[in-house]
Simulated scan of single mutants.
Amino acid sequence: MTTPKIFFRIVLFTLLASCASSKKAKFEDYVFETKSEKQTYVSAYDKALKLWDIPYTEEIIQTRFGPAHLVISGPKNGKDLVLLHGMDASSTMWFPNIKPLAKNHRIYAIDFLMEPGKSNLTAKPLSKEEIVLWYNEIFTHYKLKKFDIVGASRGGWIATLLATQKPNSIDKIVLLSPAQTFKFIDKMGKTTTALMLKLFPSEKKFEKTLTTFSTHPEKISAVYKKQFYLANKYAKSNSSMLKMTPFSDDELRSITNPVLVLIGDKDVINSDESLERAKKYLPNSKTKKVADAGHFLSIDQAKIVNDAMADFLD
């Protein structure tokens, strides 16, 4: 069994390698090293976003830490719903889920500014407290109150972090295989494929990583896969991983919101232990194990996940 100490050594090694390469940067950008890399990635992002296949608008607002990019969709009179994507995934990842989510909700999908996307960090890497400040600045800008929130993987960890802050304006919460939220990574040996992809990116390693994290990689759109690969190939900085530690019992108990936790039965990030801890410490939670699904459960079993989210949120 991999201990947290060993896990952090692996992550730290990845981080140091990232920092070493970033010293060669020709322009100032937290995520990308060159303008051409960023332009190539943004072009792939734009093509992948069209997979939403519903009307949407893109907006950029200025924040104290840099511009925040949002994709907004759904009826203006619908209940507000914030979407927080997973690591290296960006807001385009919601293409299998956006239609049912946007049916009754006003969607605000936010690109995390320390991830590949269209938000852009202009300050030093953010602390947990600064991450909360950044999101709250966005919520205030759009006057979001009593809104629902869906977070996948790292987005689930961020959603949980936001919910531990008192006061907050969150109503219902959906956590899709939240990373490092209830426990440290479950199957560390298998997830090292993702770390090796970061250090030595190649399409072969990328395909191997997909089969590790997904039970049905064939369901991943080729257009989205290209963008996701470029995110893994070009984006070297992920120092905030070091700050992603599981929440304490008391922190989880403090979250009185209705919470739905969905985890795939083949997930390499979470396990039954995650669900048990959610049941034990989240006072108003529902949990579900999704059959034949990996960490990318929102793609692996989109209909099951969509139905569960719709039932819970509506």
Rank of each mutant, 00 (worst) to 15 (best):
Q39G: 10
K266V: 05
D307R: 09
M241F: 15
T57V: 13
E203R: 15
L113S: 04
A278T: 12
Y45P: 02
S221A: 01
K190T: 08
P67H: 03
E58K: 09
L15E: 07
K50R: 14
L121E: 06
K303Q: 12
G294L: 07
S239Q: 08
K205Q: 15
V31I: 15
W94G: 08
S22G: 10
V305I: 10
M244D: 01
K187W: 12
L133S: 13
A25K: 14
S239E: 12
K103L: 06
F213S: 01
S73C: 07
T14V: 10
G151K: 03
A278F: 09
T92D: 08
P55K: 09
Y234R: 02
L16W: 10
S248T: 15
A68I: 12
V223P: 00
K280D: 11
T193C: 12
M244R: 11
T140S: 13
R106E: 09
T256E: 14
S202N: 12
D311A: 07
K76M: 12
F206Q: 04
H69K: 07
Y224R: 07
K5Y: 14
S169K: 14
A44Q: 00
W134E: 01
I149S: 00
A310R: 04
I131C: 03
F8R: 07
F296P: 02
K124G: 05
Q39M: 10
L49P: 04
Y281Q: 14
Q39E: 14
L162T: 04
F139K: 04
N97G: 03
